[in-house]
Every structure is written in C-alpha cells, then in structure tokens.
Design a protein around this nucleic acid. Structure first.
Length: 971
RNA sequence: GGGGAAGUGGCGGAAUUGGCAGACGCGCAUGACUUAGGAUCAUGUCUCUUUGAGGUGAGGGUUCGAGUCCCUCCUUCCUCACCA
C-alpha cells in the first residue's frame, strides 16, 4: 500500500475482466436458500457497433444489479442478441455478405465491446435469437398458439412496403412511412399470419401488481384503446344488414345518413348506376393513396353518395348512404351512422354536402331551444335528450358508456327491440407477424400438396411436375406443372415437433429486388414427410418482435434441447424483478411481451414451474402472467449541439444563390462586415454536396454553391481543403452516423477507462431523462477516480482524536444512506454525488491527520464497497491492495446505521412567517418545548415580535436526511 | 386536435415528496506552487440598492410554510391521430 503508483485504468481493467471470467464470478445458479433477483436490460440488435446509448442503458442497470448482489441477492443479469432482422438482409443484398456471416461477425465484435463495460453479464447464459437452438422454440411457441387458436391465417388490408417487399405492423408504420427506413407504405389486401392480440386486451389493461412508469401504462392503455358502445344493425333498402359501431347510441335518433369506408364490401352492391362513375373513381383514388396522402388532405371532408338508402332502425327514417375516406375499414365495422349534430366530422361532412342535421340534445344551461342552422360546430356536451322518441327527456351527463343515463336507456331500448346490442371495441388490431423476408424465424407451417391428372384422379406429385435432383424444378419460384396435370395446396398444417426447427437454408442467393430467397429456393420450399407426402412450406418468416417476446425465458436454460426453458429455473428466477430499457418500446415490445406471458400461462406452459415454486413456498398469486414486475426507462443520450463554421464566401450572384469561387472559414471575429454585394458571411447550417446553406447576421438564409475548382480555405486544417471538411451546425437531436454527431464509447474507454465512462454516464445525466451529450464534466469523474486511487494508496493517518473519528464515521454513514437511496430510486447521479462528498471528507481527514488508522481504513473500505457497483475495476484493484479478500463484488454492501449518522448538534432554524431568518446551534435531540423556548428568546424572534405575542408557533423536528429542527413563528 | 412529460444559476443537475432552494460536478474568478500550465492545491462563485431583502417559465389560489399541491396561461419535448 505504501508503494505509489499512478491510476492506470488501461492496465487494471482488462486484468480484472479476465479474472472475473476465469473465476466465474458472475455466474448465477439456482439456490433456493438465497433470495433471487432477476435483473434484465434490453438486449441489443447486432448492428455492428455498441454506441453510447447502449452504455447509457446498460451500465447503470449493471450498477444496480451489482448493488442487489452485494445486498445478498442471488442475481441473474444475462445478455444476448436480438439477431434476426432486416439490416442483415440488406447487407446481404447490397454488399453480398450472407446475413448469418454479417450477424455473427457483428456479434463477435460487440461481445468484446460489451466485455469492456465491465458489466456482470452472465455470458454462460447468452442467447442468440438467430441460432436454430433458439428459434426452434420460437417456432414451437408459434405452434402452441396455432393449435390453440391464438394464431391464424387471415386476409387483411396490410401495410405493404414496396421498397422492402414486406408487410409491416401498424406499430412500425409512422406517418405512412416505414419506421426504420422512412420509405412509403401502401395498403394492400393479403393473406397473412396473425396472433389474436385482442384476446388479452382487457387483461393487458390491468396493471395491478406491476410497478411500471405511469406514462408507459397510459401509452399502452391508449394503444389498446378500449371503448364502450353498441353495435346497431341498419338495413339497406336492398335488405342487406349494415352493421355499425357507435359509442353514442343515445344519438341514434339523430343519425341522418350513413358513411361507409371506401373499402367496405357492400359498396359495390349499394352503388347505383348513376353514381357508379363517381364511386369507382373515389374508391380507386382512396386505394392508391398512401396513408400519408390520405391523412395529409387535412380537415376538408371528401366523399361520394352511393345512390342507395338505409333505414334507421330506431325511427324507420330513410337515410342516404355515402362513402368517405374519413371512415376507416380497420376500425369498428368499417361503417358509421352519421350524427352530424353530435360529431364534428359528421357535422363538417353534412354541412359540405347539404345533409340533414337533427338536434337530439338540448344543451345544459341553454334557455331557448337549440337552433340547428345557427350551430357552428357539433355539440357533444351534456344536456337533455330531444327528438329521440323513447329516450326523450333522458339526462345526458356527457359520461361514457352506461354511466350516462341517456346511453344506458338507448342500449336497453336497442336490446328490448332487438335492434342492436351493447359492445366493446378496441383500437388494438390483431398482431400481424408475417414478414416476407428471409432473415427471420421460419413459420413452422406447411401446405399439403395434391396432384391430379386430367381425369381429376390423384397422382404422384413427382409425376405431375418437372423434377430435378429429387426436388421440383422451379422457374422463378414457380412449379413447372406438366401439361394435363393440376397441383393444389391444402389448408395449412403445422410441422410436427420432431422436424423442428424448420431451418433457414444457408446456401441461398439474394436478389437485388429484395425478394425472399425462401420463395424460390426449392430445397426449402418443397418437402416430403416420411410417408412420401409432399408439402409446400410457408415462406413467410416471423416478425422479430416474436423472437424478442420470450428471450428472458431462454436465458434460464439457453442450451436446453427438450424444452424452451427449465421449469425449476423458471420457478426460481421468474418473474423478472427489474427490466430496464428505452421508452420507445412502450407500445410494441413491452405489450407483445405481456401478451406472450399471458398466452403462455393459459396454455399451461408454466404449470410445472408453478408447482415447483409452490413447493418452495412461493405463494405469489400470479408469478407468470406478467413478465416484468418492475420497469424503468432510461432517457436518451442525444447528440451535442455544435456551431457550424463561420464562413466568408466571395463570388457572384446567380438567381437566388451565390456561386462562390472562394470560401474561407473565419476563426474568431470578422474585422468588419463586408459590404460588397458579392461577399457573404454567416454560419454554415447545412451542406449537401457542394451547396452550402449559411445563416447571415440577420438570420437570413443564403445559399452558396461552390463550383468545381472553387477555393476552400480552412485555417485549422493544413494542406488543400475541400467542401467536405466544412463543419455544419449540429442541433441537439438523436445521434446518427448521417448527422455526424455520434459518440464512440470505445474511444472514450481508450482514453479514460471503462470505470470513468460508466461513472460519467451515471453522474452527468438524470438517467430517466437523458439529454444532450457533453463531455466537459468527465473531468469531474476522472478526478474522483484519481482521488479514490490516491487516497487509498496514501499513507494512512495515525491520529488519536476521537471527535475526528466520530465525524468521519458519521459522514461515512451519511454516504451509505445517500448512495443506497440513489441506487434504489434509479437516481445514479445522486449516488455518485454522495461518493464525491465522502471523497471530500476523506481528503480533509487525511490533510488534518487526526483520525485513527483504524477509522481511516474502515472509511476507505466503506468507500470502496460503496463505489464498487459504479466503478467495478478500480475498486477491485484497490480492495486487493488494501488486503481485502477477492472479490470486492462478493462483499456485503455497507449497512446504514441511523444512530451513527446522527449529528450531535445541529442548527435550529428560526423561521418567521415560514421564512428562514436565522439559526442557533442546539443539541440534535432537542425537545420541542426547549426548541420553541430558545427560538422565542432569540434576537431574531424578539425583533420580529417587537414585544407582541406570536399568533402561532410550529415546530418541525429533524429527521433522517433532514436533521435540522425548525421553529416557525407566526407574528 | 387528443393524451403524456417537463420548465430551477453560465452549464449538467440536487432538494428526504409540503419544511434553510441551488447538494455534487463542470465552468469561471482570485491566490499558491511553477520556466510554463489546458497539471496540482487553496479560497470564492444565485441576484440586488447587502445591519437587510428578493429569487425555481408567467399570473392567481390553498397553507404557519409551496420548486413541490390546485386553477389559468406561455414554452419545449414525446406520443397517438378523421377511432365512430
């Protein structure tokens, strides 16, 4: 310890990482004698590089997992890869690398990067979703759902991306564009695989028993979008039933027309010859419009009359049927009854096309009868029902569902007259899991093949088609059926368990069109069972959200081949105690995960685990129905703001732009603002190729074009310069390669060490909030680590002042409390702040030199233990140097002792009218009456009382964390 | 348009959830040591008309006491969006 060596993170960090692995320090094993803690952080996609956001998400989660471990929990903290997905396939198409090769080499690289974090990941439990050993069980889950009617094949209007040649889930379509690539998405009718997402809609609305952030719960609630109302059947004049869903059955008597979605199946039949041209044109226009065009049209309502009429079942009124694209085929029944009086959209539509408006509610607080012609907008507030036959005079209190007397009466009336029924609707659609891609888990389904000859009698498949090496010969993916033969495909059936996994073929070729090779690769496409029956395989693969909907179960037993996970491991570890990750998963991954858990539970997949758990006395009501007991979201680290280069451009004007033959970057201030019309000065805001956008002093945008051979001068960069070296303005926004604002964690680790990067990320931000990157504060953290090193390796003081010992002990316990509180509440920045305060105290104590060696060493050890979750390497090194037993991460977390943290004397705060006006030193355990007496005698109080009597005196006793007692005197 | 979160020094951010606002750090200032300092150490750092007073986006309210609770408004960010 006396030997002085500087702190060199680059030397000690790899050393300890190696030793931790060699000694299997972080391997978690079931131990029923110890309480368990399953800490989970969202697994990365193997994009190729870990970015600072991964560090920001994972290292605090690691710190907390380490803390729980030191608190005596048996902690499981695993890591894996969400390895299927489009980028791998795009790499295959554009760069001719096989998706598997690309993915595996990325994972190798990222594994090393993850190791450099010094996190306590249990690598022996790693799972990789693209490995057959994993997706075999993804397929198995699919089969379970299929066999139990939770998975089905259906026709649906889907989001089709022509660019990606695949279908996307609603959640993946943002503003009519693909969430990932930003390419347009169109609507198309296709046969696809779905999960019955709404089967658990109501259960997923129940968050009791789980501790999740309120915003996530609200987002999920809105996403599920439960609404209560009624389904009402209108009859067309042809006699067809036209069912509508409404949340306002009370306004049925005001329904003066109907509107169908352009895609509604009855549109064709209802269209009269006279209206046909208009209707056809409108339907076509709506079909070709992408979602973005359809919504971008804004407020202005469009629509066409079909020429047909329906009968309103409540009053037998004949009402026209229109079509309009403001009615969505995907919600409700794809048709609405329009009540222009009460619905703003219907109101606008009626006004535009001159349709009737009937008032059905006399608004509250309106003396004269409501006048429809004077209305400027629909009325949906409370009042009394009018013009509504049997429910006239009912009170409409504006509430939703049966809580509204008018709605209640209307539903009862519908029921009694068999005109409709109460119903619940969800915004949530079934989960579309089909993807027309190669790099995903195969869907273990197949279609039996029947071959027939001209007579219609069955023949061998081999005889009906051209064959090649025992397989059907394909032409562009198509069977070559011999003349006179016919081949049909039967209803889908699941592949038997013993052929799982249906493996992705490796030696496939990728076409630049992006078409999935599975659709033209015969050995995958056609298969024969042992009885010689031929099948065509399903070529769709699963949405990768399917892979990530059960990965934390696989961590329990990643190598297991006979079940997806071991019942005993599940019984011990589940549910996940803490799940951390980004809030952007609120309505996708986190909702899918909940659905999955509930479906698994109901299919009996947890039955064995549950029995084992009960045997061991775990009596929780629902161990498996919710996957994550506690969820916390970290914020996002954004790119730093950076000013653009200040540029002086000289050239000539050409239209609205400047053709500059000379562009200079000006360092510092410009001597004088140029006044010539051909010289411009401003900050470079954006550059595309050789076109620069400058913002001049007046804030006006100036476009400068640098022609071929134009001179570029950048004083800070030697040699010849070109436009590519100009730095443009960076706003605070998400980091991305194209914006040039990414922060590379590897580079930071190389300079400062992993502990410093970890500590900086935890100290510099509010973890749950995130914020723009700014590395100026990293000095504060490296200083702290250096000080920790220097203090621990310094010669210990050898004093004998019991008061100083007591002071140090007190500060030590205050630090324990502060660090612990921060970790418990995910406020990692405050934990480190408390450690820095302790550092300041230790420095003072060392300087004064009056504390005993014993106390000093105890304080140092406590300091290392408290810091160990945040900076695992330096603390391990110093712990060893202090003679501590390996490993510091196996030690118990220091125990906070309130008595020892107590101050002997504290400041008594004297407040006048609630404002602090002065203090007195008093004993920490001063009694209320004594404190009040002392306060009243004080000069400050006397001054304010000015001889009078106080009106009121309030005593606020000191507490842990806020030890100062207060006396508030009201004069 | 609906829903949500947030607004605190020059900056990142604290504040036991109603009890001394600005912890901790960055930056800055002054000084020390230095040939030097972008190293290190010490001291200081909310504002003002400084025996005191004011101050947490603006305005109002509840309270002995409000950054914290309530109402109105402004700003920013996120999210859903013609959902019947």
């Amino acid at each position: 310890m006396s030997e002085k060596q500087p702190y060199k993170p680059q030397e000690i960090e790899p050393k300890w990482q190696q030793k931790w692995e060699d000694t299997r320090l972080y391997q978690a094993e079931v131990d029923w004698d110890k309480p368990k803690h399953y800490a989970l952080t969202m697994l990365p996609y193997p994009s190729g590089n870990l970015h600072i956001g991964h560090w920001f998400a994972m290292t605090p989660s690691d710190a907390r997992a380490r803390y729980m471990r030191m608190k005596g929990y048996n902690v499981l903290f695993p890591m894996g890869f969400d390895a299927f997905g489009l980028p791998a396939e795009n790499a295959a198409i554009t760069r001719n690398i096989h998706p598997a090769k690309w993915t595996y080499s990325n994972m190798d690289h990222m594994r090393n990067q993850l190791r450099s974090m010094g996190a306590m990941f249990d690598w022996e439990r790693e799972m990789v979703s693209c490995e057959p050993g994993y997706y075999r069980w993804t397929e198995w889950f699919f089969k379970q759902f299929f066999d139990n009617d939770l998975a089905f094949r259906g026709e649906a209007l889907v989001n089709w991306s022509p660019t990606l040649q695949t279908v996307l889930a609603n959640e993946q379509v943002i503003d009519g564009k693909d969430e990932r690539t930003g390419q347009p998405v169109i609507q198309k009718m296709m046969t696809q695989w779905f999960f019955r997402y709404t089967a658990y809609a109501d259960e997923m609305l129940d968050f009791s028993g789980i501790d999740w952030p309120e915003p996530v719960k609200i987002m999920q609630r809105n996403w599920i979008g439960r609404s209560e109302g009624a389904n009402v059947v209108f009859k067309t004049e042809h006699g067809d039933a036209l069912e509508v869903y409404t949340t306002r059955p009370d306004t049925l008597w005001g329904a003066t027309f109907m509107v169908l979605s352009p895609e509604h199946p009855l549109v064709e039949k209802l269209t009269t010859d006279e209206q046909r041209p208009d209707i056809t044109a409108y339907v076509e226009q709506a079909a070709n419009a992408t979602e973005i065009e359809r919504t971008a049209e804004g407020r202005d309502k469009t629509g066409v009359f079909t020429g047909s009429y329906a009968i309103n079942p409540v009053n037998q009124k004949r009402i026209p049927i229109w079509i309009a694209d403001y009615v969505m085929i995907t919600y409700g029944t794809g048709a609405i009854m329009a009540v222009p009086f009460g619905d703003q959209r219907d109101f606008e539509f009626a006004r535009k096309f001159g349709l009737e408006i009937v008032a059905v509610v006399q608004p509250e607080n309106m003396d004269e009868p409501i006048s429809v012609p004077e209305m400027e907008q629909a009325y949906d507030g409370p009042g009394t029902m009018i013009n509504s036959g049997p429910i006239n005079n009912q009170i409409n209190n504006g509430a939703k569902g049966r809580k509204n007397p008018a709605i209640n009466a209307a539903i009862d009336w519908l029921d009694e007259n068999s005109a409709g029924r109460e119903s619940v609707n969800y915004r949530l659609r079934d989960w579309l899991i089909s993807r027309q891609r190669y790099w995903g888990s195969p869907i273990p389904m197949r279609y039996p093949i029947t071959a027939t000859n001209g007579d219609g009698s069955e023949v061998e498949f081999e005889d009906a088609v051209e064959m090649e090496n025992g397989l059907p010969a394909l032409d562009n993916g198509q069977l070559q059926i011999k003349d006179g033969y016919n081949v049909t495909f039967g209803a889908p059936e699941s592949a038997p368990d013993d052929v799982l996994p249906v493996e992705l073929p490796e030696d496939v070729e990728f076409l630049s069109s992006g078409r999935s090779p599975l659709t033209y690769y015969a050995p995958f496409l056609y298969t024969k069972d042992t009885d010689g029956n031929w099948f065509r395989r399903e070529t769709d693969t699963m949405d990768t959200f399917m892979c990530s909907s059960w990965y934390w179960y696989r961590y329990l037993s990643p190598g297991l081949t006979d079940t997806a996970f071991s019942a005993e491991e599940a019984a011990y570890w589940l549910p996940v105690d803490v799940y951390t990750g980004g809030a952007e998963h609120a309505t996708m991954h986190l909702l899918y995960a909940r659905w999955f858990a509930k479906a698994m539970r109901d299919l009996g997949i947890f039955t064995d685990a549950e029995a084992i758990a009960r045997e061991h006395g775990r009596e929780d009501d629902d161990l498996f129905g919710e996957p994550f007991k506690l969820l916390r979201n970290q914020g996002q680290v954004l790119g730093a703001e950076r000013p653009g280069d200040m540029i002086l451009a000289t050239g000539r004007k050409d239209g609205d732009r400047i053709i500059a033959d000379r562009v200079q970057v000006i360092d510092g201030a410009l001597d004088a603002m140029p006044d010539a019309p051909t010289v411009f000065y401003g900050e470079l805001i954006r550059r595309t190729e050789n076109v620069l956008r400058l913002k001049d002093a007046a804030g006006e945008e100036v476009i400068v074009e640098v022609p071929e051979g134009g001179m570029v001068e950048i004083p800070a960069i030697d040699g010849e310069n070109d436009v590519n070296q100009l730095k443009h303005h960076l706003e605070i926004q998400r980091m991305s390669k194209s914006k040039g604002n990414v922060v590379d964690p590897d580079a930071l680790v190389a300079v400062y060490g992993s502990d410093a990067v970890r500590a900086y990320l935890m100290f510099g931000f509010d973890w749950q909030k995130g914020g723009p990157w700014n590395d100026t504060q990293i000095n504060g953290v490296t200083g702290w680590l250096n000080d920790m090193w220097n203090l621990t390796t310094a010669d210990a003081p050898d004093g004998d002042d019991p008061d100083d010992d007591r002071d140090l002990e007190r500060d030590m316990h205050k630090a324990i409390r502060g660090v612990e509180k921060g970790l418990e509440s995910f406020k990692f920045n405050t934990s480190i702040a408390n450690l820095m305060t302790l550092r300041n105290v230790l420095e003072g104590a060392l300087r004064e030199g009056r504390v005993s060696t014993e106390m000093w060493n105890e304080a140092l050890r406590t300091n290392l233990l408290l810091a160990a979750p945040f900076a695992p390497h330096i603390t391990e090194e110093l712990w060893e140097r202090m003679g501590g037993e390996y490993s510091v991460h196996n030690q118990a977390f220091p125990v906070y002792d309130e008595e020892k943290a107590k101050d002997d004397s504290v400041e008594l705060v004297i407040m006048i009218q609630g404002k602090p006006r002065g203090t007195l030193m008093v004993s920490a355990d001063i009694a209320k009456d004594d404190a009040i007496a002392m306060a009243l005698e004080s000069e400050i109080a006397q001054k304010h009382l000015n001889g009078g009597e106080p009106k009121k005196i309030i005593f606020i006793p000191g507490r842990a964390g806020n030890p100062e007692p207060k006396v508030n005197i009201v004069v």
